[in-house]
Design a protein around this nucleic acid. Sequence first.
RNA 1: UGGGUUAUGGUGUAAAGGUAGCACAACAGAUUUUGAUUCUGUUUGUCUAGGUUCGAAUCCUAGUAACCCAACCA
Length: 553
Amino acid sequence: MSEEKSLNFLEEIVENDLQSKKYKSIITRFPPEPNGYLHIGHSKAICLNFGLAAKYGGKTNLRFDDTNPVTEDTEYVESIKNDIKWLGFNWSNELYASDYFDKIYSYAVLLIEKGLAYVDDSTSEEIARLKGTPTEPGKDSIYRSRSIEENILLFSEMKAGKYKDGEKVLRAKIDMTHTNMLMRDPIIYRIKHAHHHRTGDKWCIYPMYDFAHGQSDSIENITHSICTLEFIPHRELYDWLIEKLEIFPSHQYEFARLNMTYTVMSKRKLLQLVTEGHVSGWDDPRMPTISGLRRKGYTPESIRTFCDKIGIAKRENLIDLSLLEFCVREDLNSSAKRVMAVLDPVKLIITNYEEGKTEELKSENGPDESMGFRFLPFSKELWIEKEDFMEVPAKKWFRLAPGAMVRLKSAYIVKCDDFIKDSEGNIKEIHCTYIPESKSGHDTSGIAVKGTIHWISAPHAASAEVRLYDRLFKVENPSAEEGDFKEHINPYSLHIIKNAFIESSLKEANVNERYQFIRKGYFCLDTDSTKDHLVFNRTVTLKDAWGKEVKKA
RNA sequence: UGGGUUAUGGUGUAAAGGUAGCACAACAGAUUUUGAUUCUGUUUGUCUAGGUUCGAAUCCUAGUAACCCAACCA
């Protein structure tokens, strides 16, 4: 029994509620509006809600908060369900706020009958004007004193479609001078002659968030309704409505939403990136969406670990992207198949190796012996990375340079004797001699080299397109900068290598497998890939101590 | 200028009056046929000012800062 992990404040609340017998078991819910794709911030809420229920033996509903027909679509419903399943969670019930429209309508009638709601004919401008400001109290609308009978008639006419959009609204009658703006007679129903993706044209009036969310929670007997900090002012109204309606008392709790460096998290901003073509779509691997991260090669496990590590609290936060990257590296390090690929090739010729000869050299598939071995063809002409050769070696350089020796991974030690430049001064060929006694696994040469580099036998190489991704924004917190957040987009966030050389085993690559291109990073097959045109995405780089060294200099 | 919420290393997050801990990041070293991994170590913190107490991140008082609230969005 090592030290137990301390509880977050919501776990404490749940434990107290369970211990005090307030509830026999808990029910949580994840309530997305189907008007966009889920992002990494949502996975924090998903892990929280599903995790809490799982930990304390409760259950979690998936409920779509579909009360605004003009922004919502089944396309989003499907993607949301898919993403939650992919993350590894199963909901107890798939529910929709729109399933409760009849019930919610009857709640509204009940409120009118209690004299706690009224129909207001004012324009939205007038309503806004009378609402006052945070520092000035509001004023009553002239329609506030309508009789219950008139309100009931008017509201039923609203439902029947007698009025146009915006002509009337239903408002809760609370207090126009309340210090909480949300309590100044909030609108609870509005007229929208719009087609709903589930209820079709049945309704032309729709409840507002505040008159649907808490009511849906209550209908489902949600014990702990968990949302983000910006809903704190809504809690007072949430409780007021439940009390007046005398329905199951669900309770709202709030936690701080996730923010991450070098990206944006608001649906509005993400939508802009998509519609204005800054990215290729919601699932562009540079996007912080679940679908983007999935396409980039992130594993569900790594995202869950990340959500676990960031914790749950009530203060504003900005999480380092490096933590997410750490989580995926940690996961992939133990599971990814090791392969060789040369992204920026230069020819290496082994002058003392027999022309036309091919050897099959044994190489391990992973850090764990259980992952097995494969055989790599080796020949006189190889591709290596341009960056692994320096004509004039830097300090602490232990890769290839004139006169220097390196090991070719799983093969031989070679010594650089010469190199050839093209007319523009670029290195064209590197000439080496190999040490036959230094064969990997049977090395009797007694030579110790500091550097080991990867390679591909030129006549046996396959080729592929490789897409390298960098952070989407140049600044840590684009939302906090002055002006348009899009001014801070990183113009180099995508680097496409049209023709990289890969070992031929990768022709058999499949989308579900993760690979480590040795020394280059973790990669996965992209959905754009075809049999004749392989496309790989870089999920994340490896840590690069040499890169740091170079930067320092 | 009203109301609400929050302040702990560079970033997150613990410590329920009693040793300020953990993770990421950074830095240094060891190992390494991936400058990866692994291992070891180091640096850095309680918003400010008072007070209570043997003892305060924690309690009290007064400040300060950040965020949220004036959609017929959620």
